[in-house]
């Protein structure tokens, strides 16, 4: 597809989200919802409203309007991104509602959604024009533009490294480490720690490869599933930019779930060691401990 001149000017990660993105928060009025919405607005994110059934008509965080339904919120605000941060038992319904209202990108923060519910949901979302990130995602942060989700804002600084991770806590840790080493980031994307998620490493690597602001990519993976192996194949065949990978969970015994619903392996291909080797073979620079990981950037 030929690029329009407008697309040429704007970087790809800024298409994913930018400071003009109109963001809704489903679950804004809960205790945690209020806290992170406040942080999002403080960072400069264009939060246009919240959705909480039975609370429509009230005023939420920093005077943002609350609506009963996503459709009503979209009609009033033209929101195109929604953060879902409601309890696990309501989260699936909340994502269906956002897709139904035509939200372009849905970031599901909620953790603990039953697997078969996610399988049905993802099958449905794939047939629509919406993109689902998560579940169990910490969100997306574009330094100096917007923070959509629950990431601590101070960890990031603008620069050329695209960061994509399954774990939230490790992404904070690593990004902060990059920032204090004066290695800025173009975007941070948390794809979520569940077994089955709406957006994969490869989906985000494609954005980073095509994005003119991103010069290198940091990929933070773990044991379980084959997303890192798909990423290795993509890196080998399509990536021209350097990829730095940190893979954790090398000590996990077979079959034990390591905290994330998706972090367990049944076959050798799903183990951390196998993934590390596959990424190394694909040309990525790899490490399995923090100190070695940062050293990759100085050698």
């Amino acid at each position: 597809m030929p690029f329009t001149s407008q697309m040429n000017e704007r970087s790809n990660v800024a298409i994913l989200a930018n400071k003009n993105s109109r963001v809704l928060v489903q679950g804004m009025t809960g205790r945690e919802g209020r806290t992170f919405t406040d942080h999002m607005i403080a960072y400069g994110t264009n939060v246009v409203g919240g959705v909480t059934p039975h609370k429509g008509g009230e005023w939420g965080v920093r005077g943002r309007p609350v609506f009963d339904t996503v459709r009503a919120a979209v009609n009033a605000t033209e929101a195109d991104i929604s953060v879902v941060a409601v309890a696990a038992q309501q989260a699936v319904d909340a994502v269906y509602e956002a897709v139904d209202a035509g939200i372009r990108m849905i970031i599901c923060i909620t953790e603990g959604i039953p697997m078969q519910d996610m399988m049905r949901l993802i099958e449905y979302v794939r047939g629509t024009s919406s993109r689902l990130i998560g579940a169990n995602s910490p969100g997306i942060l574009i330094p100096s533009e917007c923070s959509i989700g629950i990431m601590p804002w101070y960890i990031a600084t603008r620069g050329g490294i695209g960061v994509v991770s399954r774990s939230g806590s490790l992404m904070y840790e690593v990004t902060y480490g990059l920032t204090i080493r004066e290695l800025g980031q173009s975007a941070l994307v948390g794809i979520g720690g569940d077994s089955i998620v709406g957006t994969s490493f490869v989906d985000i690597l494609e954005y980073f490869e095509d994005d003119h602001e991103t010069e290198a990519v940091v990929l933070i993976g773990e044991l379980g599933g084959r997303m890192e192996l798909d990423a290795a194949r993509f890196i080998k065949s399509r990536m021209s930019k350097p990829v730095y990978a940190l893979i954790t969970g090398g000590t996990a015994p077979q079959g034990v779930r390591m905290g994330h619903a998706g972090a367990h392996y049944l076959t050798n291909e799903e183990s951390a060691g196998y993934k590390l080797a596959a990424l190394r073979d694909a040309g990525a620079r790899v490490a399995d401990r923090l100190e070695d990981f940062y050293a990759l950037f100085t050698h």
Partner: peptide
Amino acid sequence: VVNGAGLGMLTADAVTR
């Protein structure tokens, strides 16, 4: 004792090392 499973895995890996 951690605040995030990724950090927990990283810690277990370091202990093993």
